[in-house]
Structures are given as structure tokens and as C-alpha cells.
Write a protein that binds this DNA or RNA. Structure first.
Length: 575
RNA sequence: CGGAGUGUAGCUCAGCUUGGCUAGAGCACUUGGUUUGGGACCAAGGGGUCGUGAGUUCGAAUCUCUCCACUCCGACCA
């Protein structure tokens, strides 16, 4: 590609709505432009990056035995109603009615459609297993799109779905996908960690997340120093805390706390620490109401809670329910006597070992001091159980080992779905004995745009992007500085490299050297060839790697061969 | 959805407090010239119904209200 003919509109100044490096650099390097909140147009160089990522994904998926298909972006809402996910996905799903009055959704994912497709074609165990995938646009009407491409409303996802006759087969494909994902991210040149994850809304029995550690990630990874354990925050269990030393706790004492409902304000008023408080949080689960007790400085982990209610859908109780159950305004729920008012009580382990605590009084504008767990409310009963119900925090351990935290960008996740979708959409087959069986499923997603953004997040400097060569918009940029012999030499190298299928950008613009260097750095092209007057007079050109400071000079005639070798070495690093 | 903020040229912003001549700067763009190894310089240009709609006023970018868009924080934490 010749720069003079290319639409690569680099800019010096950034629109003020870009905050994180990947977003800023994608705008500055002319890779993309925003159309509206959470939607972006990819310009030629940006689309090339995405295309290269998609090609790697496609090659590795095909190599694993998966087959590519393409499903519609517009799906009938009816399919989603059959699995109940029309409600579960809620407002995140963009719905619309067509001219015939039919309700549709813009695909946020495709479990329903793919299961429907498979159900129609699957008859016999002899067809199993198979794994089909697509690379397509997905639309999720996010609460709050942000961080540029990291949480956009429209994005490109590779989603694969496997179908199996038995658990062993699912396990086998799951492992194949796990390894395929490793190859994909390695070839893309992004450093990732694999963590245990909860299946969440997707359902199923097992899941791993592929996460790129980086400061601007939205996910929190919890791990032990020795690398024995890594999980996301939703999943990570914690060791039980030791029982606090018993203190001379007086009788419970009601205190007036007018208009003071939040943890912080209670602490301020009573001069206490959040860790001396018990939070009582109410959830609705089907028709039941569930109370959860956690320490004031801890957060409820809904995934753990969901496990405790056997995977049933949980929802924070509405204000009305809270008022009805506690006989008080929101902010004053407490553990004493709550057992009689709700269907279940889960006490977080950290609460169960508290010596004494402050809690809500189930009475508007009142709290209770000197609450002793086990004395003033039951820890174990028909309705009450002590469980691990909170997020891990700094200071927690697992198996006695200190838990560490770091942020990351989720770029891929694999799930064992089991029969969650196949049972509801009747995806079954006849087994060897002629008996009808429900197919087992796995699903495997990769965020294409997120690979692009995370590569930038972890690899850039003050001058711009530093691409891994396999996903760079160009592998080599040729910069002639000057306009006579330099251009001729540049053309020569350009045609030699192009002939060898090296993806090359020739900066043939009539611009000063400085401009070309700045743009080459901003765009992040891994290898740069500079052809200047002085060196050329000696028959030399200069080769510089974007990621390194120094350059080397080689004879003009050898330049193409030398660069081809460098390119192939850089690629070998990512093989 | 709650809170905060911002909307003036393609981009970054000034002007608004205290209403008043033809609405400004830098970057970008066009033309000509000089330049050409790290975002050059000179000169001449083009480009804005100041987000929308209403109101107050002799007069509104500026004051008031409506709506819209965008950004940030939060959104189960009782």
C-alpha cells in the first residue's frame, strides 16, 4: 500500500472523550472513528488489524476441526422466550418489531439459534460430536458503553458451539478449544492468563476465562503467588476467617440513627469501622425471599449465592419487598428476627465468627449494638446456613496462601453448557440403543475487537502503538526521506518485499521526514526501513524495529532479504 | 436508571461572569513560494444559522426554560 493513496487519517490531538490508551491511540492512529456512543467505524488500517486477528482465529478454529457457519444478526424473540433468556438478558438485548408485527432481537449471542439449527439437523449419535462457529457482529445495548472498544455496544465475536453424545466427548472438545485458544492468543501476540470462571448467565458446569492482565481491564483476577490458583472475582473462594476472640458483650441495645441507612453514615454516626457492622441484604428468588448477611466492609458475591440456591435466578429484592419484610425503610434491615420473615438466611462465614457487631434493627431510623452472632440470631437452623457468600478482598487467603489481585481484559471464555439449551430447544438424537438423548453442549467465545484493544493496552509508548507483527496493520513501513534517488530505492525495496508477500506500507508522501517517522511510530508498524540521502550515498539503508531504540544499516541490495528475514523471525516468536 | 459535567470551524479550545460593531486562536484543509532525518516557515484563502426549540430583550454564543447528544462516577452493598 502506498501511503499517498491510503486513508490513514492520523491526528495529533485526541477527541476529549477518549480516556484510556487503546482508545486514544486507535483514534490518533486513524484506525477508527466513533459514530455514536459505543459504536465505531473501522477505517482501513483498523479493519486490517481486525481482519488479521479474524484470520488467525479462523485458521486455528479450522485446524481444531470446527466448521465455520454464519447465522442471522436478526433473530426471532420467540426463540429467546423458549429458553427464558429474553428475561434474563433483559434490556441489554435490543428488541424491535418488524412491519408484520413480529418481535425480533439483534443477536447479542447465538446459543438459541445454533441449538435450533442443530436440533433440526441432528438425528443420530453417529453425527456427533461436531463444533460449529461463526465470526460476526453482536449487539448488546450496554448500560454504559465505555473504554472505547473494550465495552462497545456493537462488536465482533467469534462464537463456537459444540454438540456431544456424552460428557467425555464434551470434555475432549473443551480441552481442544482450551488449547486452540492458547494458540490463538499466542499467535496474536497478547500475553494472557487463564482463570477459573463462573458460567453466570450462560449456564453450565465449568468455565475458563482468558484474560489479558492490564491496568484498564474491567475484570478482577484473583490468584496466588505460586500460580497454583487463578480465578476471576466472581469465582474465587476464600479461606474461613478465624473466630474472633470473645468479648464481654453486653445485651443488645437499640440506638437511634435517624436517616442513617448506609454503612458509611452509620459508621460516622456511631464511630465504628465498616468491619464491625453486619449488612443484611434481601434477594428475591422465584417466589422466595432470601436474606444474606455479610460484614459491612465485604461485598456479596452473587455468583456464590446463586450456587447456594442451586443455580436459580436471583434478583435483589425490590424496595417494596424490603419494606414489607423488615417493616422499615430500606437501610435498616438486620439479622435479629429476620429468620421468621424470610424463606432462607445465608450467613457469610466472616459474619459467623464476629464477636460482636452493629446491625440494622428492622425498624426505621434504628440500629442495634452488641449483636452477637449465634446468640442473638441463629447460625444454623432449618432455614439458616453459614456459607462463603462474599467477594475475596485484600488480606484473604486460599489454602493458607495469600490472595493477590490484578485487573484484566477478558478476551475469551469457554463454557461447558451441558443441556441448558439443548433440553429447552429439544436438541436430541437417537443413541446406539435407539433411545432419544439430549445433546450436551459447549460454547466458546472470543472478542475480536478486545484482542485488538488489549494488544494496544499492553504494548504502546508515548509515540504510539507497538504491534505484535501478526496483527499489525502493516508488517513493514518504508520511509524515503528526500525525493530523488531515495524514492527510486524505496520503490525497489517495496516491490521486492511485496513480491515476497510481505505486507508493506510505502510512505511516498511528499512530506518531511519527521512527519513520516511520527506517523510510522503512531501506527506502530513493527519494522521500518529508512532511506536517507547520506546513507544512500554509501549504498546503505537503515532498518529499525518499532520496539527497539537502535537501528542497523545494511547495503541497499541486501535490504529486502534482510527485512524478510527479520519479519520471519518476528513471526517465529509468535508461532 | 441516579449523580456530575460538556456541547462554539474537521480536531483541541478561548469568548459567556458583567448581553452590544463583521464570533476568535492553534492544529488540519486549499493555493503559491521557500524547505525536506523526528509533527517546518512565509503569504493569501475556504470553512461556524455558537447542539435543538422556545422565552426575556431594542439586541442573545452570553440570561431563563425545554429537549437532544456525548463524557465521567455510581448503579445489589440497605
Amino acid at each position: 500500500m502506498r501511503y499517498s493513496k491510503a486513508l490513514i487519517p492520523t491526528v495529533k490531538e485526541v477527541p476529549n472523550d477518549a480516556e484510556i490508551p487503546s482508545h486514544r491511540l486507535m483514534i490518533r492512529a486513524g484506525l477508527m472513528r466513533k459514530l455514536a456512543s459505543g459504536t465505531y467505524t473501522y477505517l482501513p488500517a483498523g479493519w486490517k488489524v481486525l481482519s488479521k486477528i479474524m484470520n488467525i482465529v479462523r485458521q486455528e478454529m479450522n485446524k481444531s476441526g470446527a466448521q465455520e457457519i454464519l447465522m442471522p444478526a436478526v433473530q426471532p424473540l420467540e426463540l429467546w422466550q423458549q429458553t427464558g433468556r429474553d428475561v434474563a438478558y433483559g434490556e441489554t438485548m435490543c428488541k424491535f418489531t418488524d412491519r408484520h408485527g413480529r418481535e425480533n432481537v439483534l443477536a447479542p449471542t447465538a446459543e438459541e439459534v445454533v441449538t435450533h439449527v442443530a436440533a433440526a439437523e441432528l438425528n443420530s449419535y453417529k453425527q456427533l460430536p461436531f463444533n460449529i462457529y461463526q465470526i460476526s457482529f453482536k449487539f448488546r445495548d450496554e448500560f454504559r458503553p465505555r473504554f472505547g472498544v473494550l465495552r462497545s455496544r456493537e462488536f465482533i465475536m467469534k462464537d463456537a458451539y459444540s454438540f456431544h453424545a456424552d460428557a467425555e466427548s464434551l470434555e475432549e472438545t473443551y480441552q481442544i478449544m482450551y488449547n486452540t485458544y492458547k494458540s490463538i492468543f499466542e499467535r496474536c501476540g497478547v500475553k494472557y492468563v487463564i482463570v477459573e470462571a463462573e458460567a453466570g448467565e450462560m449456564g453450565g458446569s465449568g468455565s475458563h476465562q482468558f484474560t489479558v492482565p492490564c491496568e484498564n481491564g474491567e475484570d478482577i483476577i484473583v490468584y496466588t503467588q505460586d500460580g497454583e490458583y487463578a480465578a476471576n472475582l466472581e469465582k474465587a473462594p476464600v479461606d474461613a476467617l478465624p473466630k474472633q476472640e470473645a468479648v464481654e458483650a453486653g445485651e443488645i441495645e437499640e440506638v437511634h440513627t435517624p436517616n442513617v441507612g448506609s454503612i458509611d453514615s452509620v459508621c460516622a454516626l456511631l464511630k465504628a469501622e465498616p468491619k464491625e457492622l453486619i449488612k443484611t441484604i434481601l434477594y428475591s428468588c422465584d417466589d422466595e425471599t432470601i436474606a444474606v448477611l455479610v460484614r459491612g466492609d465485604h461485598d456479596v458475591n452473587e455468583e456464590k449465592l446463586t450456587q447456594a440456591v442451586s443455580g436459580k435466578r436471583l434478583e435483589l429484592a425490590s424496595e417494596d419487598i424490603v419494606k414489607k419484610v423488615t417493616n422499615a425503610e430500606v437501610g435498616f434491615a438486620g439479622p435479629i428476627g429476620i429468620e421468621e420473615k424470610v424463606d432462607k438466611v445465608f450467613v457469610d462465614q466472616a459474619v459467623s465468627v464476629m464477636a460482636t457487631a452493629i446491625a440494622g434493627a428492622n425498624k426505621t431510623d434504628y440500629h442495634i449494638k452488641n449483636v452477637v452472632p449465634g446468640r442473638d440470631f441463629a447460625l444454623y437452623s432449618a432455614k439458616t446456613a453459614v456459607i462463603d457468600a462474599r467477594n475475596a478482598v485484600e488480606g484473604d487467603t486460599l489454602d493458607g496462601k495469600k490472595l493477590l489481585f490484578r485487573r484484566g481484559i477478558e478476551v475469551g471464555q469457554v463454557f461447558k453448557l451441558g443441556t441448558k439449551y439443548s433440553s429447552k430447544l429439544d436438541c436430541s438424537f437417537l443413541d446406539v440403543n435407539g433411545k432419544s438423548q439430549i445433546a450436551l453442549m459447549g460454547c466458546y467465545g472470543i472478542g475480536i475487537n478486545r484482542i485488538m484493544a488489549s494488544a494496544i493496552e499492553v504494548s504502546h509508548d508515548e509515540n504510539g502503538i507497538i504491534w505484535p507483527i501478526n496483527i499489525a496493520p502493516f508488517e513493514v513501513v518504508i520511509v524515503p526521506v528526500g525525493k530523488e534517488d531515495e524514492n527510486a530505492a524505496a520503490e525497489k525495496i517495496y516491490s521486492e518485499l511485496t513480491e515476497q508477500n510481505i505486507d508493506c506500507l510505502l510512505d511516498d508522501r511528499n512530506a518531511r521526514g519527521g512527519v513520516k517517522f511520527k506517523d510510522a511510530d503512531l501506527l506502530g508498524v513493527p519494522v521500518r526501513i529508512t532511506i536517507g540521502k547520506k546513507s544512500l550515498a554509501e549504498g546503505l539503508v537503515e532498518i529499525k524495529l518499532r520496539r527497539e531504540e537502535d537501528s542497523v544499516k545494511v547495503p541497499l541490495e541486501e535490504a529486502a532479504a534482510k527485512v524478510a528475514e527479520i519479519v520471519s523471525n518476528l513471526k517465529a516468536e509468535l508461532a
